[in-house]
Design a protein around this nucleic acid. Structure first.
Length: 886
RNA sequence: GGAGGCAUAGCUCAGCUGGUAGAGCACAUGCUCCACACGCAUGGGGUCACAGGUUCGAGCCCUGUUGUCUCCACCA
């Protein structure tokens, strides 16, 4: 610890030192009362090669707040850390790097060599994200750090795949799948994002070829509307609505597919919308999900015209080898030249894009592995409906349920190299399909040794779905799994409800028989200060580590915590707002310096028996604070919790109590007790603040006298609970009367521009003569009172200087007293008259409003008693004040 | 096309069970008094989007309208 506490808090040094101190002390490991159930959170695993962004900082700060709170509250607490291999994202990164530095592609290297390079990459950067999480104070049990591709987790993946296969819940099928031609792999529905795009609707003539229709009346061609002309190369029919009279006689005839020599039939299907486009749809079974269904219904041939890298294949005739963009241009040019292109209309429509690279996806018929979802979804739906899994805020349940109830089978195969290889082998001798738990050496059917493993890997989310139990040792029944599963809370942003949260829930239920957590605490996304999404390409990303460096990690965390409201959706992060929280940290730092300096070298500590009114006030406020903060944390109202601690420390403790304590310290009769209360209050405030601002609180706490501290570290200190014996409501209210008086006099002096140093004599008229008399020092010190005379309120005679008697007198009416100050030379009499008139008026109207309210029988009869009596009290008070004013 | 969120001070946002509208920043005035100018004191600033309804009482509950954001669906 530093010898002398400097004037400003220096975060960087304190952060590194205290984090190391916690790590060495093993404080992040589950400890606490073995009788209590454990409290577990699994971290949403960041990409192993990723960098900490503001979203991570936010999400993990919230988790750390919960974890630190529960740890202090005595639960054996585990925050399970880990990283994700993030298949496509990582592979793309490494490929880009290889291209840039070595000018080689993954194909140049070959599969095994490439994967080795990715592992190298992982070794190199895998610790970076962990270090960054540690920088922001994450108190994970790092010894348990897991990785989705480590041995244990890979075994869990294998077990799940094989058992789903054995249950018939995994199958291989050919169907339309979204392929990202840039990433060159299939995607699941959840990985496709739809973007509103300005496109065009092309009207193309398809000549009718059936002989009997060579009708001069004008059935020489049929017009088809399409947004994607290049796919016409794969058309195997055109369709019209069965009841569309315009085309009725064409049904069953054939048309010539322009640019090709193929004749295709005209069919009728009610999938066609008569009012849209030309009322005729080209049917391209292999490149459109709806067309695929139509083709199945009508037994149309399927014709695949594209490769997974987005080029036209040999089925595209002379267009083969062109990219889809080139093909579109070429087809349009040829249609135009051939006189087939009737017209082109602008057309807005949604285009599916890859969630990773945001290039348009290509729906394409292909062979993929699917997880059959119907059976898995059912118990995952009831788990939420029956309340075994709760969403906070609740409204996210609807999103979850809607998706789960309409869930489609999950395409889990990916045509990339980095990931869990699909554990399926085919015997090249007898064709047997083998899906084993251990890698096979020979075909179990024919004994043949020519086994070929499926080249694909699994969707990254396949392993993420198992995260809450695979990290704890499943499928083995390890002590960790036994003790910490199911976990408690999952904290994440709403944008991965489908990708991750939903899949964890059904996976947990299916494979462990238990919901993986009882609460899903969802938050929104952080946007920039203009409300725009943060992104690398827009360059508007905020680097959390830069913020932490500039303002201190605790300041960043406090700001993030106040953003964590349950109401709204996304939040704006305004970097300059960190300043306020940095200032707060500095305030706390200096208040602590004051407390420590006033303690001197006393190390003894007991809560004193005899307390002053201000002592009782702050202690009572503190009890309320403990109660409030605990409740807010339990309800996931992290913003309210942090705001209340901050406001207590700043507004109550620093601005009032410390100022009052300065007086008490000068008085030998109260000095000792004051030291104790200063210390007591600070210590509890530090505990309440610790989950939000762990570094500065630990730093200060370590400087407190041993007598107040319980244990060796604040991180492991007991979470406070309110003590009833320390609630002094009456005394606290009395203190408020004194404070009100100070505030009122300060305000008036300020308003009248009385020089701050100029003392004034006070005449205090109050029924609380004893109270005001014994605390006159407060007025001298905090409100520049000089001579003070205290008298009971003058009811009838004029034995005391009557307020009306002097025009140079300023009268200040507060809740407990009337203060009269002779400020002759300073008073602008006319202005003072006007001011009094105004005050009278406002009190008068207030009284009127209240009287109407209280004379309304509806109110007095129906409103709760406490509300009515409070209003009565207020009225009485106002009337009293009015009396004093007039 | 369907669903949901949001609308409160100049700006960014809180607001608990319906019971006297709050904070920070910004602004204004005044303070170097022994914790802190990353500070202290004081102040100005609001038709709680609009229109109805329920209620003794609505920022909060209900209905509708407008604006705005998001998710789901996909009509080529």
């Amino acid at each position: 610890m530093p010898e002398e506490l400097g004037k400003t808090y220096q975060p960087n040094d304190a952060e590194a030192r205290n984090y190391a101190f916690w790590m060495e002390g093993g404080y992040f490991k589950p400890a606490g009362d073995p009788q209590k159930p454990p409290y577990t959170i699994v971290i949403p695993p960041p990409n192993v090669t990723g960098q900490l962004h503001l979203g991570h900082a936010f999400d993990n700060t919230l988790q750390d707040v919960l974890i630190r709170y529960k740890r202090m509250d005595g639960f054996p607490t585990l925050w399970m850390p880990g990283t994700d291999h993030a298949g496509i994202a990582t592979q793309i990164r490494v490929e880009a790097e290889l291209r840039k530095t070595e000018h080689v592609s993954r194909h140049d290297l070959g599969r095994d060599a490439f994967i080795r390079r990715v592992w190298d990459w992982k070794e190199k950067y895998g610790s970076r994200i962990v270090e960054q999480l540690q920088k922001i104070g994450a108190s994970c049990d790092w010894d348990r750090l897991r990785f989705t591709m480590d041995e244990g987790l890979s075994r869990a993946v294998r077990e799940v795949f094989v058992s789903l296969y054995e249950k018939g819940l995994i199958y291989r099928g050919n169907r339309i799948t979204n392929i990202c031609v840039s990433c060159q792999t299939a995607l699941s529905e959840a990985e496709v994002e739809y973007e509103d795009t300005e496109g065009a609707l092309y009207y193309v003539k398809y000549p009718v070829t059936s002989p009997e229709s060579a009708d001069p009346a004008g059935d020489a061609y049929i017009v088809v509307a399409t947004t994607r002309p290049e796919t016409m190369l794969g058309d195997t029919a055109v369709a019209v609505h069965p009841e569309d009279e315009r085309f009725a006689k064409l049904v069953g005839k054939t048309v010539l597919l322009p640019l090709t020599d193929r004749e295709i039939p005209v069919i009728a299907d009610d999938y066609v919308e008569r009012d849209f486009g030309a009322g005729v749809v080209k049917i391209t079974p292999c490149h459109d999900p709806n067309d695929y269904e139509v083709a199945k219904r009508h037994n149309l041939p399927e014709l695949l015209i594209m490769t997974t890298d987005g080029k036209i294949n040999q089925n595209g005739g002379k267009y083969a080898g062109l990219t889809r963009e080139e093909a579109r241009k070429a087809v349009l040019r040829d249609l135009e030249e051939g006189g087939y292109l009737l017209k082109t209309d602008p057309h807005r429509h949604n285009v599916g894009t890859c969630a990773r690279c945001h290039k348009p996806v290509e729906p394409m018929a292909s062979d993929q592995w699917f997880v059959s979802m119907k059976k898995l979804a059912a118990p995952a739906i009831s788990a939420v409906k029956d309340g075994r899994v709760k969403f906070v805020p609740e409204r996210f349940e609807k999103l979850y349920l809607h998706w789960m109830e309409n869930v489609r089978d999950w395409c889990v195969s990916r045509q990339i190299w980095w990931g869990h290889r699909i554990p399926v082998w085919t015997c090249e001798d007898c064709g047997e399909i083998i899906v084993p738990r251990e890698d096979p050496v020979a075909c179990p059917k024919c004994g043949g040794k020519n086994l070929a493993q499926d080249p694909d890997v699994l969707d990254t989310w396949f392993s993420s779905a198992l995260w809450p139990f695979s990290t704890l040792g499943w499928p083995d029944n390890t002590p960790d799994f036994e003790r910490f599963y199911p976990t408690d809370v999952l904290v994440t942003a709403y944008d991965i409800i489908y990708l991750w949260v939903a899949r964890m829930i059904f996976s947990g239920i299916e494979h462990t028989g238990k919901e993986p957590f009882h609460t899903v605490y969802m938050h929104g996304l952080l946007r920039d200060q203009f409300g725009k999404k943060m992104s690398k390409s827009a360059g508007n990303g905020v680097d959390p580590l830069e913020m932490a460096e500039q303002y201190g990690t605790d300041a960043l965390r406090l700001y993030l915590a106040t953003l964590a409201t349950l109401q709204g959706g996304d939040m704006r992060f305004v970097p300059a707002h960190c300043e306020h929280f940095r200032n707060f940290c500095n305030k706390l730092w200096n208040a602590s310096r004051f407390v420590l300096a006033s303690l001197g070298d006393t190390d003894e500590w007991t809560l004193p028996d005899s307390l002053t009114l201000p002592d009782m006030w702050i202690v009572t406020k503190l009890q309320t604070l403990i109660y409030d903060v605990t409740g807010h944390l339990d309800r996931y109202e992290l913003n309210l919790a942090s705001q209340k601690v901050i406001s207590f420390v700043w507004d109550d403790f620093c601005d009032w109590y410390i100022e009052l304590a300065k007086l008490q310290l000068r008085n030998p009769a109260t000095a000792d007790a004051t030291r104790q209360i200063l210390c007591y209050t600070l210590e509890i405030a530090l505990r309440l603040l610790h989950p939000f601002a762990p570094f500065i609180t630990e730093e200060i706490w370590q400087c407190l006298p041993g007598g107040v501290r319980e244990g060796a570290a604040l991180i492991a200190a007991r979470w406070p609970s309110p003590e009833h014996r320390l609630r002094f409501e009456h005394e606290a209210a009395q203190t408020e009367l004194l404070m009100d008086t100070v505030r009122a006099v300060r305000a008036r002096r300020n308003e009248m521009k009385v020089p701050p140093g100029k003392k004034a004599a006070w005449l205090i008229e109050t029924p609380h003569t004893e109270l005001f008399g014994s605390h006159a020092e407060i007025f001298r010190s905090l409100a520049a009172a000089g001579e003070i005379r205290i008298v009971p309120p003058a009811r009838d005679d004029a034995q005391t200087p009557s307020p009306e008697s002097g025009e140079g007198l300023v009268r200040i009416v507060t809740s407990g007293a009337v203060i009269t100050l002779p400020l002759d030379e300073l008073v602008d009499i006319a202005a003072e008259r006007e001011r009094r008139q105004k005050e009278r008026l406002s009190v008068e109207t207030e009284i009127k409003v209240l009287e109407i309210k209280l004379n309304n029988p509806g109110f007095t009869e129906k409103a709760p008693e406490r509300v009515v009596s409070r209003e009565r009290e207020r009225l009485a008070e106002l009337k009293e004040r009015m009396e004093r004013l007039s």
